[in-house]
Amino acid sequence: MTIASTAPTEQEENAVLRAHITTQLEQGTLDLPLLPVVANQVLQVSGDPNADATKLAALIQQDQALAGQILRIANSPAYLPRSPIVSLQQAIAWLGMNMLAGLAFSVSVQSGIFSTKGYEKEVRHLWSHALATGLFGKEIARRMRHNVENAFLCGLLHTIGKPVILHLVLTSQTNQENLPTWTDLEPVIQEYHIPAGSKLAEVWKLPDPVQEAIRLYPDQVYLQATSPTKGAIITCLADHLASHVFDSSYLDEETLRALPVIQDLNFYPDDMDALFELREGIQQSVEAFLV
């Protein structure tokens, strides 16, 4: 579907855009293709009979769209899992290298390619933030002795609604030469990413704790979450830490340490010291991806 463009005002454009997003959300016709770089890597690794299994596993665990699609398909009747697949690691162990490679291949072929045109820097930032949140989530869960795989998945997918909205906007523009500026887009993405992410997670039948974390990770609401895995509260702190690492204008260390979520997690100053120590390592892991 496209939006007619007869030189509307900025305000009108915005209203049309919002109406379009709302309709798509209601209809549940949301989509999330793979990034070109990810699709390329998947095709390379899955097509290579001598490929290193750990490479494929790492790839699957670095990209929101790929991760979500793998979970969706692994849980589909075609694969008949013995019990619901609730983590990427479980999918990897359950499916094995050959099946996983086939699955990744079909996902990358069928999903299409995400157009980053004009928004390369921002798209990179969205992906980096998601991966960093997953990695911080893992470390937070480790300290709490909570499920590490679930915390990672919740973190990786918590903002899955952002690229969904971006994709929606990009595909709805008739005039690809006159795309909205990021400054115009950002508030819209911010406003709609949780409903969009929740809807996609529902349609893709992602595990319940992940759906809950997508809905309830923000500061004001994580206490409403009931899952024993505590994905929402873990993701809340992980999201702050990821923003702190990748956005120089974000909260500084001292302000972060005073956030209520830290008290709610029962984290002492030394717990936070340990997490802050991981900043560089996580930043490097994220930057290594998407190269």
Binding site: P84, A141, R142, V148
Partner: peptide, 15 residues
């Protein structure tokens, strides 16, 4: 606490 667990983290298994 992810693949190699102790008696605290074994309780966090989700599958």
């Amino acid at each position: 606490h992810e693949h190699i667990l102790d008696s605290d983290s074994i309780l966090s298994l989700i599958y």
